[in-house]
Design a protein around this nucleic acid. Structure first.
Lengths: 395, 395
DNA sequence: ACTTACTTTCTTCAGTGAAGAAAGTATCTT
DNA sequence: AAGATACTTTCTTCACTGAAGAAAGTAAGT
């Protein structure tokens, strides 16, 4: 939809410019706002007065004088609103409540067994909201696995949850009338890297997560690229012709070859240690997880593990090389549970990728691993809600 | 660089809105501009007067009355400026001169043997420009193979031309002081699909070209995604583990397996027809091109060709499936010289890709082949120059 | 008295909405 | 058939509005 130029647009652009400057500086005075934004003194005074009246901004004291009048410091009013973030995992749901700037106020994890229905999730969200609706609610973000259309708020297809064509945003909005942002969980993780991690310093990034599934997310020109959902299904890139049957129906997909479960299976096949094989038989009975099995395997048969992770590093290296060649990112971030075993594969995979990428693409990309931790999967959607509400122009 | 809201910005936004509306409608009257843009009558009158004064727009007569005063029709002034587009191929250079709307006024192809230096190219551009500098020159677009940084105008690395770190834009600007747009040739082809082909109707597209090399280009949110060059090196995606040695140094790349040269080599290997093998030996002496060899091969040993193209269709299908899974495009366009043999591989490749793509990604993508033809490789950059100058907002 | 920070006043300019001018068509009267 | 009148549509003009900038003023420091 095309936007026409108008006085309202001018004011909106400048208000958001000022809000962004206050947010980035945490606290700032009017004269610095004049310098940093290029707006005139009169304009700054008028707009700040407006924002104070709206209670989005507040004065919090003075800074030291440099020879004249002491400047008055301005900050975003953290208490202006609250934001709720949810991450629907397999067997658990994370809830996080933050203030206007994304600082965590409260968080909790609720575990569940078997499967969980969308109705149940909506019910839990409504309960969580009821506990905190004393403040204005800016929005609710929900991170879900699978193909998610963030524009319609629909979970098109989540294999892990067993959901298909769930209009989650609409269901939640019926109960809580606020802005609902339904997003793929890897995209949410990626948004955290963009707003709070090192991805913020780069224009184009690829995020890859290794774990139960192999996930991916793309950041293009400092914006998450979701299309209408389905972007970044890196796990379903073919790496082994006629390889293992994948859950998606294809063969030789990266996920079929290199998920946690696949690694465990490969270790079991490679090892001759009887005790280890016995332990592996418990895995499918969920007496022990694949992660735990791999931990034990490293103790009991380090040689077999090294061999399996060596092959794994080549597959991951090929996948990374392919992504670097297709997308030419400045920044490449690796995350997910499999990073626990990074010592066994990471260096080789990165070296393989950098060495085999086309031309200069391998040398120009910065490759790092996640340092933000588990909350990043939930906070990403919250950061997006803040960006959309406070800083993003409609043109 | 952040943009502040101002009266100048308002005027600029609205002028471009009006120009875009005139361009899309080819001819339009003021009352329709009021309806289509949402701007008021006074604003339309003022801005149109301005544009007429600048000679960007002109009145060209009247439309029929519908009961009142006859409306006056307005058009873009095609003669306001000229644009030059160049495509540097292997063994030839295409030159195209267009008017303000991208309509071709003049074109020529100059052949060259062996290699060609950047200096020689600049010299030819200067000569071409000298023939047509009676009109204002809006810009010059140069399409080149390899890794090209359009932001700096640098040919970082063109394997086919043997160029490395050539600051082509600067070299040209020294001779002709105008806007210079240096772009990867597949990206230029892609831009034509976006501005003049069916890609204009989709938000996210992938363009793949099959020929001497395997090239790719990405359109994200209706914008070509180039980063700082190197995006879309689809040809260097691995499809065969430990496969053929590629020019990029890696092994098993799509380009090493499925370029025109690779297909010819595979046909030669598969055939038992002595005459065909004899003809193939002439290819490396450039007595006959690979394309011509394949044409003959289809006549002399259709069975072997069918077999080779069957394998080829799987490789292309895998590559397409990988791209669909990573990028979730709405639209996928195939182009390039290998399409001459589309009857032997296209249907199978598309079917493979659609069938093996993740979830609904395969059914939602529209896959087509190029209909714009050879000039599309040159005109894409011209369309971009028009877009940047007449329609694109700086915010 | 001078410096620095912030506010107020006045000016400029772009867009808006309403009214008017210009140029049409349709109908009626002579 | 010609002229007059009524109505419609297109385009222009103009007074008003609001946002930003420039200039001048006030407040609070050293």
């Amino acid at each position: 939809m095309q936007t026409i130029g108008s006085k309202e647009l001018i004011r909106e652009i400048n208000e958001k410019l000022i809000l962004k400057e206050i947010y980035l500086n945490k606290k700032i005075d009017r004269t610095s706002l004049i310098k940093n934004t290029g707006l005139s003194g009169g304009t700054i005074t008028k707009i700040i007065s407006c924002l104070i009246e709206k209670q989005l901004v507040k004065e919090i004291g003075e800074a030291d004088s440099t020879g004249g009048r002491k400047p008055i410091l301005l900050v975003l009013n953290k208490d202006y609103a609250r934001i709720i973030g949810i991450k629907i995992g397999v067997g658990y749901i994370d809830f996080i409540l933050t203030d206007l700037t994304g600082d965590v106020i409260f968080s909790q994890t609720i575990k569940y067994e078997g499967s969980i229905s969308p109705q149940k999730v909506v019910s839990m969200i409504t309960e969580f909201h009821a506990k905190f609706h004393d403040k204005h609610l800016l929005g609710i973000s929900v991170a879900v696995s699978g193909i998610v259309n963030p524009n319609t708020g629909t979970v098109v297809n989540s294999f892990l949850l067993g959901w298909k064509d769930v209009e989650l945003a609409q269901m939640i909005k019926k109960e809580v009338d606020t802005y609902i942002f339904v997003v793929n969980d890897v995209d949410s993780f990626s948004l955290s890297q963009l707003y709070n991690g090192n991805a913020r310093f780069y224009k184009n990034s690829v995020v890859m997560t290794l774990g139960v599934g192999i996930g991916g997310s793309l950041i293009i020109d400092k914006k998450i690229h979701t299309a209408d959902g389905g972007v970044g299904e890196i796990g379903h890139m073919s790496v082994v012709p006629n390889g293992n049957k994948c859950t998606c129906g294809s063969r030789g997909c990266l996920e079929a070859e290199s998920s946690i479960a696949a690694i465990a299976a490969r270790i079991n096949k490679a090892t001759t240690v009887a005790e280890l094989k016995k332990i592996f038989s418990s895995v499918s009975n969920t007496e022990i997880s694949e992660l735990e099995f791999i931990r034990k395997a490293i103790d009991l048969d380090n040689k077999a593990c090294k061999k399996v992770f060596k092959e794994f590093s080549v597959e991951i290296g090929i996948a990374m090389k392919n992504l670097i060649n297709i997308l030419a990112p400045d920044y490449f971030l690796l995350g997910g549970e499999t990073l626990e075993f990074r010592d066994l594969f990471m260096k080789d995979a990165i070296e393989f990728a950098k060495k085999n990428a086309f031309g200069t693409l391998g040398t120009k990309v910065c490759i790092e691993t996640d340092t933000l931790g588990r909350n990043a999967w939930t906070l990403g959607g919250i950061y997006k809600i803040i960006e959309v509400n406070l800083f993003e122009n409609r043109i």
